[in-house]
């Protein structure tokens, strides 16, 4: 077994989950963000995978641990552990398949049933490059996001459009919540234990803006 190796120092570790129907492009969003890779030949995800990447927010290093799971309904029960400790979520649908947008509501319910009410959620309309096949309008999705008080963005993992923005936005929002919460209780944010689940503060909803930067 390899010895533990801290590949980098970080100030915060945030667990973010990717959810959404099968085939909407969750795994490619993950690989685009963490490795700048995209594969047209990707297989369906069985079980759970995860990858990490660190970004800078203010003068802090935020390490995102992003979990990716099978989209099939059958796997949801098996992977309920998946949600534990998540402080952020990207709820992905495919702009070319309307049914994946219709199912967003169910995903949102499941997410809210299993996570802290203050989790930062972003609705993500992926495959925005397939303009001629679009089946979900930006307006519909934006309206839904406003109603549900989530962030919203359209992305293309293939064209690398907005992928960086979507993840960065979610991580920044989580950071804002956590650092503000830490200030409120008078703690030094850097002193938060590493590798531990960080509870999002109670006042996150007040800070959410909606439809911050749709494509």
């Amino acid at each position: 077994m390899g010895a533990y190796r801290a590949d980098e120092d970080y100030d915060y570790l945030f667990k973010v989950v990717l959810i959404g129907d099968s085939g909407v492009g969750k795994s490619n969003l993950l690989s685009r963000f963490t490795r700048n890779e995209f594969s047209l030949e990707s297989k369906s995800t069985i079980g759970v995978e995860f990858a990490t990447r660190s970004i800078h927010v203010d003068d802090k290093v935020v390490k995102a641990q992003i979990w990716d799971t099978a989209g099939q309904e059958r796997y949801r029960a098996i992977t309920s552990a998946y949600y534990r400790g998540a402080v952020g979520a990207l709820l992905v649908y495919d702009v070319t398949r309307h049914v994946t947008f219709e199912n967003v509501e169910r995903w949102l319910k499941e997410l809210r049933d299993h996570t802290d009410s203050n989790i930062v959620i972003m609705l993500v309309g992926n495959k925005a490059d397939l303009r001629h096949l679009r089946a979900v309008t930006t307006e519909d999705a934006k309206a839904f996001a406003e109603r549900e008080n989530t962030f919203f963005m359209e992305t293309s993992a293939l064209e690398s459009l907005n992928v960086e923005n979507a993840f960065t936005e979610v991580l920044t929002q989580i950071y804002r919540v956590v650092s503000r919460k830490a200030l409120e209780v008078g703690d030094d944010p850097a002193a938060l234990p590493k590798g531990q689940t960080i509870n999002v503060g109670d006042d996150v909803s007040a800070m959410k803006k909606v439809g911050c930067c749709s494509a």
Binding site: D7, G47, V48, A51, T52, A81, Q196
Partner: peptide, 21 residues
């Protein structure tokens, strides 16, 4: 299974068991 699946070598970021029920 997770550590097999993950492309990230688990030396870099192995999920603490605390994540799992």
């Amino acid at each position: 299974q997770l550590s097999f699946n993950t492309r990230d070598p688990f030396s870099s970021c192995y999920p603490p068991v605390g994540y799992l029920p």
